[in-house]
Simulated scan of single mutants.
Amino acid sequence: MPQQVRGVIARSKGAPVEIVPITIPDPGANEVVVAIAACGVCHTDLTYRDGGINDEYPFLLGHEASGIVESVGPGVTHVEVGDFVVLNWRAVCGQCRACKRGRPQYCFDTFNAEQKMTLEDGTELTPALGIGAFADKTLVHEGQCTKVDASADPAVVGLLGCGVMAGMGAAMNTGNVGRGDSVAVIGCGGVGDAAIMGSRLAGANTIIAIDRDPRKLEWATELGATHTINATEVDDVVEAVQELTGGFGADVVVDAVGRPETWKQAFYARDLAGTVVLVGVPTPDMKLEMPLVDFFSRGGALKSSWYGDCLPERDFPVLVDLYQQGRLPLEKFVSERIKLDEVEKAFETMHRGEVLRSVVVL
């Protein structure tokens, strides 16, 4: 029987979010209802609210979440009632050309629940990244659920559902950071700091954090940066990176900002044949103009990283286990724990750069 729960929605562009009753249908084929335990406040949710993704209002916000499987629909074999899961937005299909070529991290046809959650009047909701987890419960495809250690802190491990995985994967999967490498990360918010943590886990020797905010550089140091560069205090960021890498530049440079100027810095701050990874999200109007000969003469690899090129079923359980063993300090990303009615306030706090993550705990 359909049930009514609380959910945080964005009703129109730029309007403050609202807590309203929403209706969750019974799970259909391959669908599950998850009782949400915790959900991080990600910048992508703010982008949805402000119309930066699309205009399919109203949005049911929230996507960086963990919870307990409450009920399952026909044909569900992936999870069972009572499983503790981290939600993801990459439920790979197994049938598209990327999956068939053994590259499921690039799946072109990821699954979401087919049924719609609605407002009381029947208005269909668009769940953020196909999840919609600023709610007591949500409806997702079974493939969007990854079972992990049930004793883990929900507020911590739920962050793997987006930002932390995006940053760690940008370094470890896309950038292929290895033992002894030098890495520079431009932009030390949640995603950039996760790239720093991933670089440390992968065995990088020199990890350079670059930002304009001293507080963020402190956070980066706590998460594994060996050197910091305050971009407001140096004449040239590229030269500053080169000075810290024997004059050569870093083996891997991660741009966690996503602006033309930071991407250019990343390009020129890498060593010859080094790798640039773009994980910061640019806006559609941004343009890049550079001499083509510079691309030819420097070699290497220029990559973009979508969700850290992760596979949730492969990556989430391993990272949760490392966290449980005390080898991965994921808890440092949780700046504050808040209530469902504090999401709008958390957007303001995030916009001011005062937190790595606010986490709604239900």
Rank of each mutant, 00 (worst) to 15 (best):
A301R: 14
V148L: 09
Q105G: 11
E142T: 02
D193Y: 00
I196M: 07
A171E: 03
A152G: 10
P282A: 10
D109N: 15
E222M: 12
L60E: 00
N88D: 02
Q3R: 14
H351W: 10
G203C: 10
N173E: 11
V92Y: 08
A155D: 09
C96I: 03
E344A: 10
A240I: 09
V254Y: 02
A29Y: 09
V81C: 12
L330D: 06
G190V: 09
W306N: 13
F111K: 15
G130S: 07
L129K: 10
Q144P: 05
S151D: 12
E336D: 14
D255N: 02
S182T: 13
P16Q: 06
H43Q: 11
E80V: 14
N54T: 11
R212E: 11
L217P: 02
E348S: 12
A184P: 01
I208Y: 02
M117E: 12
L340E: 00
I24V: 13
L223T: 04
L362T: 13
V8G: 02
T44V: 13
E31I: 04
A240K: 00
M290G: 01
I68E: 05
P2Q: 10
F347K: 01
L201I: 09
T275H: 06
S358N: 15
A266Y: 06
T206W: 06
V234N: 02
Q105K: 03
T110Q: 08
C188F: 02
G163S: 12
F296A: 15
T126P: 05
D50R: 11
L201K: 12
R49L: 12
E289Q: 13
A133T: 03
S297V: 15
G94V: 08
A209M: 08
V320K: 01
D294M: 11
E336K: 14
A266K: 01
A301E: 13
N230W: 08
K137Y: 04
N112Y: 14
E261S: 15
K147V: 15
G158T: 05
V156R: 05
A133K: 04
Q3L: 13
E218H: 12
E18L: 13
V76K: 06
A128Q: 10
A250Y: 04
G82Y: 01
D271Y: 00
H141V: 05
G163Q: 09
E233Y: 02
D309T: 14
T123N: 09
P291S: 04
V360G: 00
P282K: 04
T110W: 05
G300N: 04
V20W: 01
I210P: 04
V253G: 01
I207P: 03
E348A: 14
V191T: 09
G7E: 08
E313D: 13
Q3F: 11
E80D: 14
D271V: 10
I9H: 02
P2Y: 05
E31L: 05
T47C: 04
A346D: 03
T232D: 15
R270N: 03
T226A: 02
E233S: 02
L201P: 00
T138V: 07
F347E: 01
T126Q: 12
F59N: 01
E56A: 14
Y57P: 02
G102L: 11
M1P: 13
L278W: 00
N176H: 12
V185L: 10
L201G: 03
L129P: 00
V76S: 06
L302P: 00
D211W: 06
T275A: 08
A256M: 07
A301H: 07
Q242L: 08
V241Q: 09
V157N: 07
R352V: 08
V81N: 12
W89S: 15
A171D: 04
R298W: 10
F134K: 06
C310T: 13
A256W: 04
